[in-house]
Amino acid sequence: MRHCYINGYALIISVDGFDSVDRDDSKAFFDCLYNGSHVPRDSFDYKKIISDGNLRRRMGPLVKSGVAAGLLCLDGVPSDSVGGIVTATGLGFLSDTERFMNDMIDRNESMLNPSPFMQSTFNTVGSHIAMIRGIHSYNMTYVHRGFSFESALSDAMMLIDEGAETVLAGGFDEMTFPVHKLLVRLGSAPKFQNGEISGFVLLSSIRTGNTFAELHCVKTRYGHFSEENLEKWRSDVALSYGTDLESAGIFDCDSSVSGPYMTDSASVLCNALEKGSGKTFIRNDFCGKNHSLILLDIL
């Protein structure tokens, strides 16, 4: 494998409706973590990041958030050096999906606005980033529960190995109050009931002065296993990269402020890049069936 570096990252969180005790329910939470610094809410402006008003005006909340996080990572990167845009989402663009579904029922399948349908397509963020930046290379979207972002990241690494210079990879999901209610009934709901989270990383085959980390591997394992069995699997992965779980830093999904949601590993990775150092694992065990490990060396 060629070496694969993380040369940029952006995480945009805009959520509200927390029901946990340690947060004020009425307070919305916003954070934009961009290459190691936090952009204050007052100076964060979607209009500045997505300058094409004609594209922006049709974007739903998650499309806007995902496109903005992706564009932040690509800032200053020549379009023709980008060998791929690989995105991930578990549930996609819920606001647009709900809007189209409600209109369809309310208007008895007639006189429906096409925009929410179009925006509900899972690859909308990746294709908008391509359109805004004129990037014609590989464009892919993964939609597999707790493996969504892991699949995107491992595909992005494969593209670097196949010769790409830079590849953008990201994961994003949104929550709406109605869907949150359903997820609570299903037993796996995030801590926020409304809002969206998008996390992107810029991978590169070239190490520069601005490199944040080297990405070693993304491993996934599917199925129900005993905790012992999983622990052995994780140790074996660590061992094959010359480290062990005890001496490496571990960032767990689901333990972050947001609680379990399908592309949590994208934001956990961004948080690890800010707070972690040295050999670091991102550990994810989504719904007891989607197990993954991301191993990186934070510089």
């Binding site: 397509t121 990746g126 993964y142 939609v143 597999h144 996934t220 599917y222």
Partner: peptide, 18 residues
């Protein structure tokens, strides 16, 4: 026998091709 790798792609009408 089981799966070592499993994922889903959704790029609208080119999903299966991808």
């Amino acid at each position: 026998p089981g799966f070592d790798f499993i994922t889903t792609i959704s790029t609208a009408c080119s999903s299966a091709g991808n």
